[in-house]
Structures are given as C-alpha cells and as structure tokens.
Design a protein around this nucleic acid. Sequence first.
RNA 1: GUGGAUGUGGUGAAGUGGCUAACACACCGGAUUGUGGCUCCGGCAUUCGUGGGUUCGAUCCCCAUCAUCCACCCCA
Length: 421
Amino acid sequence: MLTTRPTGTNDFLPGESEKWQYIEQLCRQVCAEYGYQEIRLPIFEHTEAYLRSVGETSDIVEKEMYSFEDKGFRHMTLRPEGTAGTVRAFLENKLYANPQPTKLYYIGPMFRYDKPQAGRYRQFNQFGVEVFGADHAAIDAEVIALAVEIFRRLGLTGLTVKLNTVGCAQCRPSHMEELKTYFRQYEDKLCTTCRDRLERNPLRILDCKEEGCKAVAKGAPTTIEAACDVCSAHFQKLQEYLDAIGVRYEIDTNLVRGLDYYTRTAFEIVIDSVGSAQNAIAGGGRYNGLLAQFGGDDLPGIGFAIGLERLLLTLKEQGIELPVGTAPAVYIAPLGEAAQKEAFVLAQALREKGIYTEKDYLGKSLKAQMKAADRFQAKYTVILGDSELEKGVAIVREMASGGQYEVQLNQLAEDLEGRLK
RNA sequence: GUGGAUGUGGUGAAGUGGCUAACACACCGGAUUGUGGCUCCGGCAUUCGUGGGUUCGAUCCCCAUCAUCCACCCCA
C-alpha cells in the first residue's frame, strides 16, 4: 500500500524522463520560432472556472473532475484541461492591455478521473497553445501548423488533421433546433446515451460511435451546412491558408469537440496506430465568446493541446528513438581512502569545467570500477591508487583504445579538458 | 461507470495439490597479487499481489480484496 502509486498515475524514471525533456524542449523551441510565450499556471482552480467553460453537460464536468473543498470551504478542482486557467489568467492579469494578439503556451499535468487504459491516465501531461485577440483565420491555420510542425520534427508519420466548423452564437441555436427536429424522427434508433443527448446537446450525437447512431447521423444537417455566412467564410479562408502552406487536412463533418466552449473551427489530429484506441493525439479549436463568459471583454480565442503520453506512445510504436542521456566524459577510479578524497577534489575540478564526471562511491575494487566505467561508456578513466599518489600522478586510460598514460595530478584537469575539446 | 484478461525474484518468464520454486537477462563477487567489454565459476524468491477458506498439505482449487493491462465510453 505504501509502495503503490495512485491508479492512473505514472512514474517516469531515468531513461524515460530524458525523453520528456527532449519533447518539452522541442515544444519550447517551436513555440519560440512561432512567437508563443510560456505561461505557468496553478494546478488547481476554482471549480466554477470549469463548470462555466468546459460545460456542465460535458463528461469532464459530469464525472471526471478531481474536485475538493479546501479548508476555507472553497470548491477547487485539479485542472482537467488548460484553456480555462489560461483564460482566467489572461483576464486577471489584464494581458488584454498589451498589444494583441497574445500567443501563449503551457506544458504540464492535467487530471481527469477516467478509467485508465493505453494512452489514457488520470494524471497526464499536455502541451497546449492559446491565442487571444485574433479572429482572422490565419491564426487558426498557424495554430494547426504549429502542432503539425512539432510532429513533423519528431518524424511522425500517418497523421491526419481532421477539420470542422461547429457554429457560433449566430448559427448554433438554429442548428441545434434543426438537429433536435431531425433526430426526434429517429429517436428509437439512437442509443440510450444519445437519446439523453437529444435535448441537452444534440451536437454530440454526430460524434457517437454506435452503428445505429452513425447511420442516423449521416442524414443529419451538418454544422457546415448550417453555418452562417461569417462562419462559412472563416472556414473557407482557413482552408485556403492551410492549402497555402501545404498542411493537409480532411474535413470531418462529424467532428464535434467534447468541450462546450468551441465555436467555428474545431480540429483534431489523429494517428493511425494499431496499439491504442486513443488515436487523437491533439485537439483544439476556436472559442470566441469564452472570455466574455469569464466576465471579460469579448475577445476571440483559439487553442489546442497535445497529449504527451500519447505522443510518447506513438513515437514508440513508430520506432522513433529519442535521446536518452549522455555518457560521462571521465570516470574516476580511486583505490583507498586517501585516493578517494583526491578523486573527490578532482571530480569537482572537472565538473567546474563543465565536464561530466562520474566516480566510485562504494570503495569497489579496481576491476569493479573498470566495469562500471565501461558500463557508463566513459571516454576516459582516471586511475588513482597509492603508488600514483606517492608520485603525484594519475593514470589516464582511454577506454576505446585501451591506451593509458600518466599525468601530473596538478595538470590533470587541464589535460583532460584539452583532450575532450 | 460497464465488460474482459492477468498478477511467480530487478526484468522476461517455466512450473506442479506434497521433498531445498526451473531457466535466461540484469545485478553483486571471484578466476595469483591494482585495470573494462569475451569466457568460466559462485551468490541473489524462508516464497509465488494481499486476506480468508477447502485440504493431512496449496504458488497451483474456491471466495474476497487490491493492483495492472485491454476494450466500451470519453478525450489529449
């Protein structure tokens, strides 16, 4: 009990953590090139922030939130996604006073009380991007391009950008009514959850995977058909912009996002993987009106998030190796207590020069230390025994060739530094 | 929340109602005195997720529980 982690959480051990660092570094690099700046936010927010934004009828709010009451009886929730917190911070810190648009990114853990399975965890990590204050379709295209660029640099293949427009405050209400009217005719053919969705959120029926519902949904009026002129024009322009930079996409009229705040552009990046049913590796869309819901000015917004566990999973499936750390340049093998101290001093001197240095801490035999140096794949091993100490020298062995020579102790750090240049 | 599968040392795994629970890898130590990668030798599970039960006796049978994995659902 004391040695089991909570269900749905992960320990990322050495060997794995380097991969995370690599991916995070890549995300930061691409963001820097696209002009997105990092925002670091709390891990929990007021529960209302999610009720109001993600939507009370969404699965996330209805059954997946890690909510608790703090000692002051305030309702708190471990963030299930990044957009609500980013919007909150944008307004609270009055970033709207800066020249717009504001282009932000975040990276970190999210929490959802799901039943874990491949590519789905209760604590999982997302890299996400949010842009406020720009309504032009160019920014929609840029955001999609940014996600695709990250995947491209990783060498991923077989990904598809699925695109849809899901309506806005103008066209959604009438479309919802159309949908209700349409689906009511086939109510008996819908699954139980979809019957439930019919009145509350008929849009979601379009996304249902049940065969019966899928068949019915085929004939339903699509969001594209129902789109108002502004939405249509926006969607058209987005496609033109994506075409212009060669980002390929597929229009999926059934694509509906599970979070209620999306308007107009909705997209998802899926990967045809064999290993996992969780094939959506990134998802996002536009959310004009969300800032107003938080009580701010009615600035437009758009964003997406990448599920990093899924990204790692996909990389593994596609056999893409990420760097897992570097080998030490120097391994110091002391023999005896006097040498141990000398080795300690030498290690410090080398490290101060920026040289990755390993040493023995256990007083192992020379043989065992050589083995360790070999396992570390150290470039050089410094052997420091009593006879060397007496002469004020150390033996430096180049591991690959097996050649070795003596160096004066007081010149050792400089000597190694020179050789490693 | 629903359904399915699994749970033997650090890892991958064999195994059977009954004497000291295979094997491989990893790890540790050794093969003449202070030197790696190959080879050889030795060590490494009072114990088979946990708690009950059946039995003369259970890792192998039953029940419960916990955990993991997979699918549905949902989503990243």
